[in-house]
Amino acid sequence: MRRIAVLPGLMVLAVTAVTGGASAGDATAVAHGPYLGQTPPGMIAQPFAPGIVNTEEWGDAGGFSQDMTKFYVSRWRHSRESEQPESVIFKRVGNEWHKVPMPDEERKLFESPDGKTLHFKAQYKERTPDGWSEMKSLGPAFEQIQIMTLKASAKGTLVLDERGTREGISILRYSRFTDGKWEDPKPLPDEINTGIWNAHPFIAPDESYIMWDGERESGYGESDLYISFRQEDGSWGEAINMGDKVNTAAEEGGPRVTPDGNYLFFNRMVPKAGGDGKRQSDLFWIDARIIEELRPN
Rank of each mutant, 00 (worst) to 15 (best):
G131T: 00
H119A: 09
R107I: 04
V88H: 08
S82Q: 15
V100T: 11
N95C: 02
N95S: 12
H98S: 01
P140Y: 01
F90M: 01
E111S: 14
E86F: 06
P140T: 03
G115W: 12
K125D: 01
F110I: 04
L158T: 03
V100M: 13
D130A: 13
H98T: 01
S74R: 06
L118T: 00
P140N: 06
K116D: 09
T157K: 15
M148S: 09
K91E: 12
L158M: 11
V93C: 03
E106I: 01
Q84G: 04
I147Q: 08
V88I: 14
H78A: 10
F110C: 05
P85M: 06
R75N: 05
W97A: 01
K70D: 07
G131Y: 03
R77Y: 07
F71G: 00
P103H: 05
Q146C: 03
D114Y: 07
V88E: 08
K121G: 02
E106Q: 15
L109R: 06
E126N: 13
H78F: 14
S87T: 02
F110H: 07
Q146K: 12
R80Y: 11
P85K: 06
S82L: 10
L109E: 15
Y72Q: 09
P129T: 01
I89F: 09
D114G: 09
K99R: 15
P113D: 10
E162F: 02
K99S: 07
P103G: 01
W76L: 05
S137W: 13
G115L: 11
F110L: 10
S79K: 11
K136V: 05
G115N: 09
G156I: 02
K99Y: 04
G131K: 01
T128S: 11
E111L: 08
W76I: 00
S87L: 05
T117G: 04
T157H: 11
E83H: 09
E143S: 12
S112N: 05
P129S: 04
K91Y: 05
G156W: 10
E143W: 09
E96V: 00
E105Q: 08
S112T: 04
D104L: 11
S133T: 02
R77K: 15
P85V: 02
A154D: 12
R92S: 02
S87C: 07
R127S: 10
S137A: 12
L138H: 01
Q84C: 07
T149H: 12
M148N: 13
E143Y: 11
K121E: 13
S133H: 09
D130H: 09
I147G: 03
E106K: 03
V100Y: 06
M148L: 13
G156C: 09
S137H: 10
K151R: 13
F90N: 00
Q123T: 11
T149L: 06
G139N: 06
L118G: 01
G139T: 04
K91Q: 12
D104G: 02
R92P: 00
V93P: 00
V73R: 13
M148E: 11
T157S: 14
D104T: 05
V73C: 14
F110Y: 13
G115K: 08
L118A: 01
W132T: 00
G94F: 14
E86R: 13
P113T: 04
R80H: 09
L158P: 04
L118Y: 04
E83P: 04
K125E: 08
P103Y: 04
K116Q: 15
S112Y: 07
L158H: 06
E106F: 05
A152C: 10
K121L: 14
